[in-house]
């Protein structure tokens, strides 16, 4: 087994997704099969290789630090599931 139910449960919590018991066992089996497949990467010697996180040769992109017009708060807030004035409203955090 590359992955157990407990690991899937742990990772789902990290990802902030609640899973039903059924989903948990279903996903565990499927993820196990996928991880088993990707194990073929272990057959390669990667010790001397640099990772490619990005294909372009990128340097930092700078711009002038100028104030530009941004979207009005009313526009930004219009999709909010709950709001009060120009603030997103959620349950009590602390």
């Amino acid at each position: 087994m590359a992955i157990t139910k407990d690991t899937v449960k742990y990772v789902a919590n990290l990802a902030r997704i609640e899973l039903t018991e059924k989903e948990l066992s279903h996903f565990t089996g499927q993820l196990d099969r996928i991880l088993d497949y990707v194990h073929k990467l272990k057959t390669l010697d990667v010790a001397r290789l640099e990772p490619t996180s990005h294909v372009l040769e990128m340097k930092n992109i700078y711009r002038e630090d100028k104030v530009k017009q941004s979207l009005p708060p009313s526009e930004v807030m219009k999709n909010a599931p709950a709001k009060e004035k120009d603030l997103f409203k959620v349950q009590k955090i602390v």
Binding site: V46, L49, P51
Partner: peptide
């Protein structure tokens, strides 16, 4: 997993 995959991406 992730880092190894990025290295193979180089290949």
């Amino acid at each position: 997993y992730y880092l190894r995959a990025l290295k193979v991406r180089t290949l």
